[in-house]
């Protein structure tokens, strides 16, 4: 018998603190698998966020740096500029990236930083107890939107990929839900492409993974996956938003943006 599937060595052999059914574990594994497959483990430096995934610095076996809340793209910028031969990734939740760290991620993208961002969107703050996130959906009840998110009161959920797709400097941009084996396989491909964009020197890469928070949502892991499919996916349409090779040094990118960015990833309700 040969091993067809096992824990990637880029993850430390230890149990995680994540709640049952939380898809952080899947996302960690995909990143680790890609790092191994691309043969960059020895050059990899990960940046952990503040939030549920803060302890990612323990779980990944590569060099790791813990960043202040939302600042991971700035920290990654510093690492990459100091060590251009390092393969640098950040792993950030939606509060970290899309709320307090929005400026950092947008500007890292605009600079075309050669880093890879793994963005976990589960529409809630998990670590702090299920508060409203910038990605919390309309009508969604959280511990700080107890009556359900209403635009007049709490504003609209932010679509990060749609926001970043017009930013020059982005070389790869995709959104994939982690709702089933086929989607997980697709997510793995997206993560790999985002890393490849960094390795090829093409620019900034980000993969948004639609994830679950069964505890914060008050659902079983099964129900949570279904909720991603039925409620999150319609608002956060999956797809590859950018696959072009942005050239942070300049070049004819501006001319290409109009044709490369299409509406293929769903409607803009």
């Amino acid at each position: 018998m040969r091993v067809a599937f096992k824990r990637p060595d880029a993850l430390v052999d230890m149990p995680t603190h994540y709640c049952p059914g939380c898809t952080h574990g899947i996302a960690h594994r995909l990143v680790a698998e890609v790092i191994e497959e691309l043969g960059v483990f020895d050059r990899a430096v990960g940046v952990a966020p503040v939030g549920c995934a803060v302890l990612a610095y323990d779980y990944f076996a590569c060099d790791m740096v813990q960043a202040a809340h939302g600042r991971a793209p700035a920290v990654a910028t510093g690492i990459k500029r100091a060590r251009p031969d390092a393969v640098v990734f950040t792993y950030q939740g939606d509060g970290d990236l899309a709320s307090i760290g929005m400026a950092e991620v947008v500007h890292a993208a605009a600079r075309g930083e050669l880093v890879t961002v793994i963005f976990i969107n589960n529409a809630i703050y998990g670590m702090t107890g299920g508060q409203m996130a910038p990605t919390t959906l309309l009508g969604q009840q959280t511990t700080t939107s107890p009556f359900g998110r209403e635009p007049a009161r709490e504003g609209y959920p932010i679509r990060v990929c749609e926001l970043l797709e017009r930013v020059r400097g982005v070389a790869y941009l995709a959104r994939v839900p982690l709702t089933g084996p086929a989607q997980v396989a697709r997510a793995r491909t997206a993560v790999k492409r985002a890393f490849q964009a960094q390795l090829d020197g093409k620019g900034f890469g980000l993969v948004e993974l639609l994830s679950t928070c069964p505890t914060g949502w008050g659902m079983s892991p099964r129900e949570a996956l279904k909720w991603v499919e039925e409620v999150m996916v319609p608002y956060y349409p999956p797809g590859e938003f950018r696959t072009d090779a942005a050239d942070p040094g300049g070049g004819p990118l501006l001319a290409r943006v109009g044709s490369e960015v299409s509406g293929k990833h769903g409607e803009q309700a």
Partner: peptide, 21 residues
């Protein structure tokens, strides 16, 4: 690098210092 803010700038320092610079 001209950062997007003082906040980002100090965190870039943090990253570069982490990488040994």
């Amino acid at each position: 690098i001209q950062a997007e803010s003082e906040v980002a700038a100090i965190n870039m320092v943090y990253g570069a210092a982490a990488a040994g610079a």
